[in-house]
Deep mutational scan, measured.
Amino acid sequence: RPRTRITDDQLKILRAYFDINNSPSEEQIQEMAEKSGLSQKVIKHWFRNTLFKERQ
């Protein structure tokens, strides 16, 4: 599977949600997927990776 490139606009959407809640529900993930055009799997990975980076 090729690597997914996240655009600046998509990143703004993900960051806005992350700043509010770094552990989103399935409904929130689905909402982000619809708004951003990214798959739910990509969003879950982004949140997991970003949370890991923030904790270091």
Rank of each mutant, 00 (worst) to 15 (best):
K53G: 09
T7L: 04
T7E: 14
R55A: 11
N21M: 15
I29C: 07
R5V: 13
R55W: 05
D8Q: 14
Q28R: 13
W46T: 05
K53F: 04
D19Y: 12
D8C: 13
S39F: 03
D9N: 13
T7D: 15
N21R: 05
S23C: 12
Q40M: 13
I20A: 14
W46F: 04
R5E: 15
Q28E: 06
S36N: 03
R1Y: 06
P24F: 01
R55N: 04
E31W: 04
K53E: 12
P2F: 15
I6A: 09
S39H: 07
R55M: 05
Q10V: 03
L11T: 08
D8N: 04
N49I: 13
T7M: 13
T50P: 04
Q10H: 04
S23M: 11
I6V: 10
R48Y: 03
I43D: 00
S23E: 14
P2Q: 15
M32C: 06
D19E: 14
I29W: 06
W46E: 07
F52G: 13
P24R: 01
E27W: 13
Q56G: 02
S23L: 09
E34W: 04
P2S: 14
I29R: 05
D8P: 13
E54Y: 11
L11F: 07
T50R: 11
S39N: 05
S23H: 15
Q56A: 01
V42G: 09
N49V: 07
R1D: 15
Q10E: 02
R3H: 13
E27F: 15
D9F: 14
P2C: 00
K53Y: 10
K44R: 12
F18C: 06
R15F: 04
E34Q: 12
P2N: 15
Q40V: 08
I20N: 13
Q10L: 01
Q56D: 02
K41E: 10
N21L: 08
R15K: 13
K53A: 13
D9G: 07
P2G: 13
R5W: 05
Q56P: 08
R48E: 06
S36Y: 04
L11M: 07
K35H: 03
K35R: 05
A33T: 13
K35I: 01
R48F: 07
K41Q: 04
E34A: 12
Q56C: 00
R48L: 10
K44Y: 13
R15H: 03
S23I: 01
H45D: 12
I13C: 06
N49T: 13
R1A: 03
I6L: 12
N22V: 14
Q56N: 09
A16R: 14
A16H: 14
L38S: 01
I29Y: 13
D19F: 05
P24T: 02
N21V: 05
F52R: 15
K44D: 14
K35L: 04
K44P: 01
T50N: 12
E27R: 11
M32I: 04
G37M: 10
Q28M: 06
S25P: 04
A33L: 03
A33F: 11
I29N: 02
R15E: 08
K35A: 04
D19I: 10
E26C: 05
P2D: 13
N49P: 02
E27G: 11
I13V: 11
G37K: 10
R48V: 08
R48H: 13
M32D: 00
V42M: 11
R48I: 06
W46N: 01
Y17H: 10
R3L: 11
L11V: 06
F47T: 04
T7R: 10
E54D: 08
D19K: 14
L51V: 13
F18R: 11
N49K: 15
D8G: 12
L14K: 00
K35Q: 06
A16L: 10
E31I: 09
K41H: 13
M32S: 01
Q28C: 04
Y17C: 05
L11R: 11
I6W: 01
I13R: 05
L11I: 07
F18H: 08
S23A: 13
E31D: 09
E34D: 12
E34H: 03
I43E: 00
L51G: 07
Q56L: 05
W46Q: 02
K41G: 10
N21P: 02
N22S: 15
D19L: 14
Q40W: 08
E54A: 09
D9W: 06
K12A: 07
H45A: 11
Y17D: 06
S39C: 02
Y17E: 09
K53R: 08
S23Q: 12
D19S: 15
T7P: 04
P2I: 09
D9R: 07
D19W: 02
N22K: 14
K12F: 05
R15D: 06
E54M: 03
F52H: 13
Y17N: 13
I20T: 14
K44H: 10
V42F: 12
A33M: 07
L11G: 06
A33N: 08
L11D: 09
L11E: 14
A33W: 01
K44T: 11
F18D: 04
Q30M: 14
R15M: 15
Q30W: 03
L51E: 07
K53S: 13
T50S: 10
A16G: 13
T4S: 05
R48C: 10
I29Q: 07
A16M: 15
Q56S: 02
P24G: 00
R1V: 05
M32E: 00
S36Q: 03
L14E: 00
R1N: 15
I13P: 01
N22D: 06
E54S: 10
L38H: 00
R5G: 11
I6Q: 02
K35V: 02
T4R: 02
I13K: 10
Q40E: 04
I20Y: 08
S39V: 09
E31A: 08
L14R: 00
N21T: 12
P2Y: 13
W46H: 05
Q30A: 11
R15Y: 05
Y17S: 04
Y17V: 05
E31Q: 12
K35P: 00
G37Y: 02
I43F: 01
V42Y: 10
